[in-house]
Amino acid sequence: MNPVALVGRIFLAFLQAVGRLIMFAGDGLSHCIRPPLYPRLILRQMLDIGYYSLPVVGLTATFTGMVLALQSYTGFQRFNAESAVATIVVVSITRELGPVLTGLMVAGRVGAAIAAEIGTMRVTEQIDALTTLSTHPMKYLVAPRLIAGILMLPLLVLTADIIGVMGGYLVGTHKLGFNPGVYLHNSWQYLETLDVVSGLVKAAVFGFVITLMGCYHGYHSKGGAQGVGGATTNAVVSASILILISNYFVTEMFFSR
């Protein structure tokens, strides 16, 4: 095949996929605000996405905070700036590491589960069955997950922020010899509301991205078990990439001068 035609074909396929995703997202969001909503399903998804992600998010945050304290201490020691460790830990966690690492961990856990569940429903005709039972699949399957993702990720990130800072505190006070009171004082002194708020906004965006990609790839999966497996992989990979890309744009929105 002509290489130019091949590039053109790939580009057109890419545009088509982007268009389909945007249409899917718009449709899903419109069902989030149009009644009827399904409170029982939303609560169940909040439990799945939020509560059951706590262990993995907590562990990630703890060790991230601990490593961050250790790394920044060894780095700043060269410039006699060890006193900045607490501030560096709290700002890094709240602005970046809390939301991004939580997002990536939840993408792996929840994004994959959503894609596998909806994908299986697609290939076993359960989604068609929903339609024949006068129930819109976007409203019943997609909207509750989107709502739960947008609401629960900020709560998870807030938890991760607190646990992460405590991880840094443990290493700082028990291993690096900081005075506990001084460490906590330094943590609070330079922390601004915007640091936390920007992280929570990122979390809401990531929650949307993770659930959207899980639903989108699951909804369009085909071809049996292999198709569902592919949908699961695509959901996790695309959600992870979109988290990193959207992270840049949200950061620029808050902090560019």
């Binding site: 359960q126 068609d128 069955a129 024949t132």
Partner: peptide, 19 residues
């Protein structure tokens, strides 16, 4: 379409029961 669907019942080949 939703209203029209109320006229229909469907038995799927694999059952398509919700797990």
């Amino acid at each position: 379409r939703t209203k029209l669907m109320r006229k229909f019942g469907m038995l799927f080949q694999g059952g398509a029961l919700f797990d």
